[in-house]
Design a protein around this nucleic acid. Structure first.
Length: 498
DNA sequence: TGCGGCTATTG
DNA sequence: CACAATAGCCGCAG
């Protein structure tokens, strides 16, 4: 039972220090949480006060929390007592929710996910240093041995682009404004210089082609290059970052050090260690399947029987699969224009329960009403957490903001519920892994990477699949909704199958 | 030095 | 292109 994780679930907040968790459990106003001030002439720390961790106003004493010195058994006992009190209060708060039994289950899964995060941070992801260095070298050249060489390589990369520029001007390729005026010089007018916009240029001049290649290499040099390896790859060839069990809008897991956004080109470097393989499992179309479960839409639930959910939807709407997919994603993200717009209206008619669920979330978001996900996580939409302090806003601005809040709410209900199911799955896999001496080494929103002994690979793959079915049954009592995973046994992350 | 804008990568 | 993240560099304000 992780007090901080349960607090985040109940309060819809990211911050979860002891003072906040305590205040939340006791229903105290978070604005009145006392902050530690260094004692001065007028505010002496009262020695006898610090013996009692709780102040007269009900908040925890900041001085007591930060007390230095040896950890005595008396102090430990007090901590345990406080923790137990918070846990009991959290438990009754969860039970009091309209989705009470669901929320209590989520609280346990979220707690298990925190434990998993601690292990992920400690263990790290196996990454073959020599393979990684070769991939980097192919893109930006060998590791520079001096500062001068580093600058030299950089200048040479820049020159590959600037040699196509008209003479005379000085342009900094790292400055978007400079790049834009450089493009204007050769007769290309663009509102911004994003890659997708430059790629759309028909019959691109050599400068544009060179610029796009430069951008790729520059990304490697600045973010996923030698410095990245030096900072995050340990001597044991494990890539380590910090992990958070429930972050951001809807409680997804997050990770730093590039663990969640590693470019596809780098993935061949993620190699299983000697005597081991990866069991890679990723969920198919988790978000629309989750939408079917949380909304209880009978027709959408029936569609989840298909391995490719978009096929029966396309058939139902009488459109191509690609259109159906764009429409479903658009509905979940709050898109109202574009290619999916027509199909969006057909979706409304075909799956009214699911679409109403999304629309009601959107309306709540626009009007600043807080929501809870299927699993009980509070999605904060009230103005105090959205209004920008001190900025005067006109009508148009506030309507834009309300629309953004509607899209946010719509998506958070689906993405958040998907994150909850994912964590139930991960927690089950984590627990069952011990029997096979296997470990989860990466969680990626809808994908698990398990590092397992070769001799247990098939059994682990089997276990991961059955854990998904168990997770679905525990998470959602609606047995009509089917969840599918693509599971493979591979030597390196980039492998399609083993 | 801090922060918003722009750009890239991922699900 | 809408949703969610992490992270780098530039340019500006303080």
């Amino acid at each position: 039972w992780d007090l901080a994780a349960v607090h985040r679930l109940l309060a819809g907040e990211w911050r979860a220090d002891a003072g906040r968790v305590w205040a939340g459990a006791h229903g105290l106003d978070t604005d009145s949480i006392p902050v530690r001030r260094p004692p001065d002439l007028f505010h002496q720390a009262a020695a006898d006060d610090q013996r009692h961790p709780v102040r007269p106003d009900g908040h925890l004493h900041p001085q007591w929390l930060e007390e230095a010195g040896p950890i005595t058994s008396a102090r430990l006992a007090t901590w345990a007592q406080l923790a137990l009190e918070v846990a009991q209060l959290q438990h009754s708060q969860l039970r009091g929710l309209s989705c009470g039994s669901q929320a209590s289950a989520t609280a346990r899964a979220e707690s298990a996910a925190e434990l998993l995060c601690a292990e992920l941070e400690f263990d790290g992801l196996p990454l073959d240093r020599s393979v990684a260095e070769r991939i980097i070298a192919d893109s930006i050249g060998p590791r520079p041995s001096s500062e001068i060489e580093l600058v030299d390589q950089r200048n040479r990369r820049d020159a590959e682009v600037l040699c196509h520029a008209p003479p005379g001007g000085r342009f900094d390729l790292r400055s978007p404004a400079d790049v834009r005026s450089l493009l204007r010089r050769i007769g290309i007018e663009v509102p911004d210089t994003r890659a997708w916009r430059l790629e759309a240029i028909v019959d691109p001049p050599p400068l544009v082609t060179a610029l796009l290649a430069w951008r790729k290499a520059e990304r490697v040099a600045s973010t996923y290059g030698y410095t990245w390896l030096d900072n995050h790859l340990g001597a044991d060839s494990r890539l380590r970052g910090s992990w958070s069990g429930s972050d951001g809008a809807a409680g997804r897991m997050t990770a730093s050090a590039g663990l969640h956004n590693m470019p596809a080109e780098m993935r061949p470097a993620v190699v299983a260690e000697n005597g081991r393989v990866f069991v890679r499992a990723d969920l198919g179309q988790i978000e629309p399947r989750v939408l079917a479960a949380v909304s209880g839409d009978p027709l959408l639930a029936a569609a989840t029987a298909a391995p490719d959910l978009y096929a029966p939807i396309a058939e139902q709407l009488g459109v191509a699969r690609s259109i159906a997919k764009v429409a479903v994603l658009g509905a979940m993200y709050g898109q109202t224009t574009g290619r999916g717009a027509d199909a969006l209206r057909s979706l409304d008619r075909a799956y009214p329960v699911a679409m109403t669920y999304l629309r009601e979330a959107s309306v709540a978001g626009r009007s600043g009403r807080n929501l809870r996900t299927f699993g009980g996580r509070l999605i904060r939409l009230d103005s105090s957490s959205w209004v920008v302090e001190g900025s005067a806003h006109d009508d148009r601005e506030s309507r834009t903001r309300d629309a953004a809040r509607g899209r946010y709410a719509r998506n958070a209900m689906v993405q958040g519920a998907a994150a909850e199911l994912f964590k139930v799955w991960a927690a089950l896999v984590r627990a069952r892994c011990t029997a096979f001496d296997a470990r989860i080494v990466l969680c990626l929103h809808d994908e698990l990477l398990v590092h397992a002994p070769i001799e247990h690979a098939a059994a682990v793959a089997e276990m991961v699949g059955s854990c998904l079915q168990e997770a679905a049954a525990r998470w959602s009592p609606d047995r009509r909704v089917r969840f599918v995973a693509d599971i493979s046994i591979i030597a390196r992350w980039s492998d399609v199958s083993g």
